[in-house]
Design a protein around this nucleic acid. Structure first.
Length: 930
RNA sequence: GGGCCUGUAGCUCAGUUGGUUAGAGCACUGUGUUGAUAACGCAGGGGUCACAGGUUCGAGUCCUGUCAGGCCCA
């Protein structure tokens, strides 16, 4: 018989390497085959609910790292909650309407104008659903446990119906109104364009400098004073209604030599302007801040029915022009915004084809907008207001399809009046908890400063605005009618709107005093897609019976303060008076290894599927908790490599625990806490605190705290200490003896706790471990519950004592290392230690009440009283002498013993070992050992 | 230009209400083992806390500015 056969070396088939790219998909298939998602929920049916509401990704394109981070984070939370006493469903969603999908159709060669709208919408729907399927498969590869068979999709009839009802509620409360607002307008395609449909080219334009005569100087400016303004779009002078100044910028009133008129120009532009206009000498009569001149008025250059208001806004710069900006609210976004603040008219003097309308004046009517420069100059010159013209080259927006220039032009739009319930929104934010805390401030500022919400889009692929027009063009916004439309959508889908006439969309007997002939028209615009996803609290949380409103948690990237967090909040407060979420968790963005934005053009992106296929999705999942997700997170191959090292450490540690508990049955062999050896009790306490800390980190969504605690526990407490000293027990001691069983009990509890605590992050690995735990009865680890914190009484004293021991151990290690360096010993087993202890240190030793020789992993230990002998080296307060161990080496435990051969049958073994052999391997007495 | 956020060892993170020589894990170097072995132990080196001012007896920690980076606006 061999010595080795009398040892209890660990045994397990659990592979050291995970082969994750290969095994993960197989394991996921098992989950889906077993319908694990619903199994877990069924088990939790009577528990309190925890609702994480999924923000819908846009159904277009491949999933990227941001998607992965988002879904993995949600999966971690949902899995944790389901294993911690909650019923936590996870209904994934997709955002499917909107322009990008229309653009994909165009790219694919479809022409929107060559087919009926309903047909175009069918194509869009088909495309969107294909994208959903593709993304769904990719999300499943990430190991996400969700209701993949029943997602919510914003194009689903029940979702659209709920959304329209939200709109109806808001209309019923008077929050919806019609106005107009500038948009990118392509006269060449007679259509509004989105930012994405525009490309920029350099063009030459004629810019004009002209003067506006003061009308009401408010006692500050004389009536012979003129504001000098500059414009690069002369046609907009016809719709000019204001002059915008920088509130903190300086303006001078000057009088050039030989001039009777006075001019207002920004001080910072005076030199440039004077030379441009040939003002050789001028005197400065006064200077003002922009804000001093607020609300002074001037005459429109020629239109007597209009006037120009002096306003202040921050967008004014001194880069060009005069520091005074001619402002036409119908033809520019800045102009519109500042105009709204001052209540200016939104004049639009160009029609949809780019021709001037009657409102521009009879001289202009019918002229093409780009051909009126000379006419404008003539009109200005007639009034002696023209100052100069100048050719400029600048970047200008073009229609990407027709390659013609575009203009800003106000068109009728539907608005949601945020102003009417802004204060309720702001107040209700106090009832929401934000992770991180600054999220509240960020959302608060945005809501506080935002304007009304433009909810209409001049597009086709979206939910129609359920509004009708009477014969005299009066819009009909009636909640009852809107709900009637919602009912139709619920039955037939929103394409019904495009397939039917207005009369078929209205209740059968509907009449309206504005339509004496019973004729009606329907609105052609659709809703902003943010209204779609912003209604999901109604379309999903309120609609599905296993979910509740408000949600416990919304979790998205920090860009969603402007997006989904924002739009959901607005619609929810508008309808119910409350936020749709109790908690909001926002995450940063993934950056490359240098901290820069990831982008395809820079070629620094990392695909989550590539990581899954090359390293395993477990690595990316582990990465997710290794970083502080509340901030931006760098990712690189180097970083992922480091994470995979951590994964290997975790995996190996689990493997070691499994190998050394493979002959252990917790039900029959476990040793109670009170009966455990001192070091096992100590480690039990460490484990218990570890469970408490990790659970608390999960509860607070502090993922990287989970990571840090796990890694430290595994490396420091387990690997470097407990598992290291353990080998001399679990390998060497009697297989069923108390010392070994005591330790195996703790091993098993540790293994089980680690496996469960890691499951939300590493579900594949946890399930793999589970297959090696025959005593655990559930089919899947995911059907088990999180380890509970035990009441072990007051452990403060115990921990303090052992912390002191760890300091002592540290000193001993240093002493041993020196002995090794001087070649006195090789391994620790060759050493005998002599410790010269102070009174305090002796107390520590007696309090430990443990086998200290074993804990220090040396063959022999001698404890002496402290000495004044200065030749004995002090290691951080401990006087230690290392010498060679006495006696001989046992080939079995490889330690030095002075009692080898005490049992004549076993001349090479110590007495203690011989006893073990006689009891557990009696055949060795006759066979002998070698 | 505005709102919000970030910048501590090669990497990922801790650093409490400002208080002694700034910590951890990984990586690295050396070394021991070869009964966790494409593993494990031990020891060690490594930081002008982005930069510059300021407040204070004292600042990684508070204030101001600069630089770099991110999200959202303009």
């Amino acid at each position: 018989m061999k010595y080795k056969d009398t040892l209890n070396l660990g045994k397990t088939a659990f592979p050291m390497r995970g082969s994750l790219p290969k095994t993960e998909p197989e394991r996921q298939q098992k989950w889906y085959d077993a319908d694990l998602y619903n199994q877990r929920l069924a088990q939790n049916e009577k528990k309190p609910h925890f609702n994480l509401h999924d923000g819908p990704p846009y159904a277009n394109g491949n999933i990227h790292l941001g998607h992965a981070l988002n879904k993995i984070s949600k999966d971690i939370i949902v899995r944790y909650k389901n294993m911690s006493g909650y019923y936590a469903p996870y209904v994934p969603g997709w955002d499917t309407h909107g322009l990008p999908i229309e653009q994909q159709l165009t790219k694919a060669g479809h022409d929107r104008k060559s087919m009926p709208k309903s047909e175009w919408r069918d194509l869009a729907k088909q495309f969107a659903l294909e994208q959903v399927n593709k993304q769904r498969n990719d999300f499943k590869r990430l190991g996400i446990m969700a209701d993949w068979d029943n997602p919510y999709i914003t194009l689903q009839p029940e979702f659209e119906a709920a959304q329209v009802r939200v709109f109806g509620e808001m209309a019923g409360k008077g929050y919806i109104f019609k106005g107009s607002k500038p948009v990118y307008w392509s006269w060449s395609s007679e259509s509004a364009l989105a930012e994405a449909e525009i490309e920029y080219h350099d063009i030459d334009s004629t810019s004009l400098y002209y003067a506006n005569k003061v009308k009401d100087g408010k006692g500050i400016l004389d009536s012979d004073t003129y504001f000098v303004v500059w414009t690069t779009t002369p046609f907009t002078v016809t719709a000019s209604r204001g002059i915008t100044l920088g509130p903190d910028m300086d303006y001078a009133v000057i009088q050039p030599e030989g001039e009777t008129r006075k001019f207002v120009v920004a001080t910072g532009r005076l030199d440039v302007i004077a030379s441009k206009f040939g003002w050789e000498n001028y005197k400065t009569l006064a200077t003002y801040k922009g804000q001093d001149l607020d609300r002074i008025t001037a005459f429109h250059p020629w239109d007597e029915s209009a006037e120009e208001m002096v306003m202040n806004a921050d967008h004014v710069t001194l880069d060009s022009g005069t520091g005074l900006v001619h402002t036409a609210p119908g033809f520019g976004e800045d102009d519109f915004n500042v105009g709204q603040k001052y209540g200016l008219e939104v004049a639009v003097t160009v029609d949809e084809k780019g021709f001037m309308t009657a409102s521009a004046g009879t001289d202009f009517e019918g002229e093409f907008y780009d051909d009126v420069v000379d006419l404008v100059i003539e009109k200005l010159s007639n009034k002696n207001l023209f100052l100069a013209k100048e050719k400029i080259t600048h970047s200008y927006p073009f229609d990407w399809r027709t390659k013609k220039p575009i203009i800003w032009r106000a068109v009728p739009q539907w608005f949601a009046s945020v102003d009417k319930f802004r204060q309720s929104i702001l107040n209700d934010l106090d009832n929401v908890t934000f992770y991180p805390e600054w999220g509240k401030k960020r959302l608060y500022n945005m809501i506080r400063d935002r304007g009304d919400w433009v909810i209409s889009r001049q597009r086709v692929w979206g939910v129609p605005l359920p509004i009708f027009y009477a014969e005299d063009q009066t819009p009909i916004l009636d909640q009852t009618i809107i709900n009637h439309v919602a009912d139709l959508f619920e039955k037939y889908g929103s394409n019904y709107w495009f397939e039917h006439e207005a009369k078929d969309l209205l209740p059968a007997d509907y009449t309206n005093e504005h339509s004496p002939n019973g004729l009606f028209k329907k609105e052609e615009d659709i809703m902003d897609v943010w209204f779609d996803s912003g209604s999901s609290w109604a379309g999903v949380m309120n609609t599905r019976k296993q979910l509740d409103y408000p949600a416990d948690l919304y979790l998205e990237g920090s860009d969603q303060y402007r997006g989904w967090f924002n739009s959901s909040l607005i619609t929810s407060v508008a309808v119910t008076g409350h936020a749709p979420y109790k908690n909001v968790l926002s995450q940063g963005f993934t950056l490359d290894g240098k901290g820069n934005k990831m982008s395809k053009s820079l070629g620094n992106t990392i695909s989550p599927l590539d990581v899954a296929n090359q390293m395993g999705i477990e690595i990316l999942r582990l990465w997710t908790i290794s970083v502080d997700t509340s901030q931006d997170m760098p990712v690189s191959n180097e970083i992922l490599k480091q994470v995979s090292e951590s994964y290997r450490k975790l995996r190996n540690t689990l493997r070691f625990l499994m190998a050394n508990t493979s002959d252990f049955n917790y039900q029959t062999d476990a040793v109670t806490y009170a009966e455990r050896a001192a070091h096992d009790q100590y480690f039990s306490v460490l484990l218990n605190n570890f469970i408490k800390d990790v659970r608390s980190a999960y509860d607070n969504y502090q993922f990287n705290d989970v990571f840090k605690r796990v890694i430290n526990f595994v490396n420091v407490d387990l690997s470097a200490f407990y598992l290291d000293i353990a080998k001399d027990v679990v390998y060497v001691e009697a297989p069923t003896g108390h010392a070994r069983r005591s330790m195996q009990t703790v091993f098993y509890e540790t293994l089980l706790a680690l496996t469960k605590l890691l499951l939300p992050v590493l579900p594949h690995t946890a399930e793999e471990v589970w297959e090696y735990l025959p005593n655990e009865t559930t089919d899947f680890a995911y059907l088990s519950d999180m380890p509970e914190v035990q009441d072990l009484g007051d452990t403060t004293q115990l921990l303090e004592t052992w912390e002191k021991f760890m300091i002592m151990r540290n000193s001993v290690n240093k002493a041993l290392e020196e002995a090794r360096a001087s070649e006195l010993i090789g391994k620790n087993a060759e050493a005998a230690l002599t410790l010269y202890l102070t009174d305090e240190q002796q107390t520590l030793v007696s309090e430990l009440n443990a086998n200290i020789r074993m804990l220090l992993m040396v063959s022999q230990l001698h404890l002496e009283s402290t000495t004044s002998d200065n030749s004995i080296k002090d290691y951080d307060g401990f006087k230690i002498v290392v010498s060679r161990a006495a006696g001989g080496v046992s080939p079995r435990d490889r330690m030095f013993h002075e009692d080898l051969g005490a049992d004549p049958a076993f001349p090479e073994l110590s007495k203690h070992e011989a006893e073990i052999i006689r009891e557990f391997y009696p055949e060795a007495v006759s066979e002998g050992l070698e």
